[in-house]
């Protein structure tokens, strides 16, 4: 066996879902469960190596080819826009990007330029560019919901899962921006140089996902 295929997983929920998926495919993920503080973990029987990283870093590692593959949310992919192959929609980690405002706020009324608070300035810019609409974008790091409540912004573009946080703060979704779920990404050179190994794994993953969907 050659060098193991290195796959970067987004720490947290996507990591758990991915490990569960790998286990249903028959891979022994003991090392990942008992990781302690280690960040590079072997899955010996699959000739795989798991790397744990934050979402944006998964993309960076795969883009540079230091990891062959990665599992990351579409939200981060849309914001980062890297050069890579996005082979599989894994189906888990589902949520959406949405534009939200205070309840009954006349967002599209009037001629003034609107201000949007968001953690995802690139996604927001692309969304409003498509509409041909000028907006001011303010980057917020923490709870974006605060910005319209405090009067800093007219609306927010953020990830919405259940909508509970919005509701509790008197906000509502005005428009969906994009659907989000976890994606399997692959480095552009790795796919070509290690086509057979990667395609074999991708095929197994796809079969499993389609089984679940049926």
């Amino acid at each position: 066996m050659g060098k193991p295929l290195r796959i970067a997983l987004t720490k947290g929920r996507l990591e758990k879902d991915t490990v569960a998926l790998l286990e249903t495919l028959g891979y022994d993920c003991t090392a990942v469960h008992e990781k302690g503080r280690r960040l590079i973990l072997p899955i010996p029987d699959g000739n795989l190596e798991v790397v744990l990283a934050k979402a944006a870093d998964v993309i960076t590692y795969v883009e540079h080819g230091v990891c062959d593959m990665g599992v990351v949310g579409k939200d981060t992919l849309m914001e980062m826009n890297g050069k890579l192959f996005e082979l599989v929609n894994l189906g888990f980690g589902k949520c959406k990007f949405a534009l939200a405002t205070k309840k009954n706020y006349p967002f599209y009324d009037g001629f003034g330029v609107k201000t949007i608070a968001t953690k995802y300035p690139n996604v927001t810019r692309a969304f409003f560019e498509n509409k041909g609409m000028d907006v001011d974008i303010v980057k917020i790091e923490g709870s974006v919901e605060l910005a319209p409540l405090l009067g800093l912004a007219d609306g927010i573009v953020d990830i919405v899962e259940t909508g509970t946080t919005l509701k509790e703060n008197g906000l509502e979704v005005v428009e969906d921006v994009a659907q989000i779920s976890a994606r399997l990404i692959v480095n552009t050179v790795s796919l070509k140089m290690r086509q057979q190994e990667i395609e074999a794994l991708v095929q197994k993953v796809e079969e499993k996902i389609n089984d679940k969907a049926d």
Binding site: K83, L84, F85, E86, L87, V88, N89, V186
Partner: peptide, 16 residues
């Protein structure tokens, strides 16, 4: 639409 298709083929984004 054509540009979108092109970019999805380039990134081998099969599902999209």
């Amino acid at each position: 639409q054509k540009e979108e298709i092109r970019s999805l083929i380039e990134s081998k984004n099969y599902p999209a």
